[in-house]
């Protein structure tokens, strides 16, 4: 599983970081998402990523399975 992030679309809500702070961070410049682990393999991490993608308000995150 691979996560992709479109930082142009991201509005810096921080929902992804709130959902999984070990997988997502945000830039101090414009708040946009920083992927800490674009290809998570642990089942827990994969579940958290799915949740984050579902909660992202801007549609900046997507999954490539």
């Amino acid at each position: 599983m691979r996560v992709e992030a479109d930082t142009e679309v991201c509005v810096g809500s921080g929902m992804c970081a709130l959902t999984a702070s070990h997988l997502f961070d945000q830039s101090d410049e414009d708040g946009s998402v920083i992927l800490l682990d674009p290809e998570p393999s642990a089942p827990d991490a994969q579940r958290a990523v799915r949740e984050a993608v579902g909660r992202c308000p801007s549609g900046a995150l997507s999954l490539v399975e």
């Binding site: 810096g12 921080g14 702070s21 414009d30 708040g31």
Partner: peptide
């Protein structure tokens, strides 16, 4: 506006 401000309101900063 959003890009200008969002860096100030990140989860880590808060």
């Amino acid at each position: 506006y959003r890009k200008l401000l969002a860096g100030q309101f990140t989860l880590r900063r808060m």
